[in-house]
Simulated assay, not measured.
Amino acid sequence: MSTPENKIAELDAAAQAELNKVLGTALGVAREQLEEQGVFLPFAIAVEPATEENSEPEVRLLAVQPAEDPENPEADIDAEVMMADLVQLLNDQRETFNAVAFVSDVTLLDEGKDAVHVLAEHRDGGSVAIVQPYTAPDPETGVWEFSEPSAEAGQLQVWI
């Protein structure tokens, strides 16, 4: 199976704005969850098209329940399974949305740092991945440190 072409450079201003909306919202929600809870489970952000009743596109937060192992209820949550479930959920509902972003907490092995990873895509064929490293708060200050995010072309997951 061939990889679909990433048309990020061809997106019009409205599509770019929707992509930016899911990216900004995704990074903001992840940061908020880290600051409040110290952790977050994978989730997705989606933008519905504007309607006659609502001139602004509607932003939705979507999540899936972590699977439990009945034989080992203390087992760690499998974030990869949760992410696969989110991709499937949004594939099933792709006609409802214009743009989506998948958000997960990752470890950058080369740097030995944790990071927020966001993979966003638009129905018109553009995808971008953002990685924002972070450091847990200093016990004295309680302040989280978030590095500048870096971006690269993403791989389409929903509109393929």
Rank of each mutant, 00 (worst) to 15 (best):
D138I: 05
I130R: 09
E52G: 10
T135M: 07
G125M: 07
E148Q: 14
E52R: 09
A9W: 01
V87F: 10
D138N: 15
V29M: 12
I8F: 11
N91S: 12
A15V: 04
A79N: 12
K113V: 11
D92H: 06
D85T: 06
V59Q: 08
L27F: 06
P66F: 05
P57I: 06
E145N: 12
Q16F: 01
Q37C: 02
P57S: 05
S55T: 11
Q37M: 13
N98M: 04
V143Q: 15
A9H: 08
D124A: 15
E68G: 02
L27K: 11
V143D: 15
R60L: 12
S55P: 01
A67C: 00
V131P: 00
N20T: 10
P66Q: 07
Q132M: 15
E148V: 02
S104V: 04
L23N: 12
F97C: 06
G112S: 09
E148S: 13
D76T: 02
E111T: 09
D92F: 07
V100S: 04
L62V: 08
A99Y: 03
P139T: 10
P149Q: 09
T135S: 15
G126M: 05
E53Y: 00
L34A: 07
D76R: 07
A50K: 13
A101T: 08
V39N: 14
E74S: 10
V116N: 04
I8Q: 01
H117W: 02
D92R: 13
A79G: 00
V47P: 00
P70F: 08
D12T: 08
Q33G: 00
Y134H: 11
D138M: 06
A15K: 02
E10Y: 02
P57M: 04
G125A: 06
E18N: 14
T51Q: 04
F43D: 04
E36F: 03
G24K: 10
H117S: 15
E52Q: 12
S150D: 10
A84S: 14
A13T: 12
A63V: 02
A50C: 02
P137N: 12
V87S: 03
E148Y: 03
L109S: 10
F40V: 10
E111F: 06
A26C: 05
S55L: 12
S127K: 05
P137S: 11
E35S: 08
G126V: 07
A84I: 02
E32I: 03
F102S: 05
G112W: 04
A15E: 13
V47I: 09
A120T: 06
N98G: 13
V100P: 01
A46F: 06
H122F: 07
G126S: 04
T135H: 04
G38R: 13
R31P: 00
E35L: 06
V106Y: 01
E52H: 03
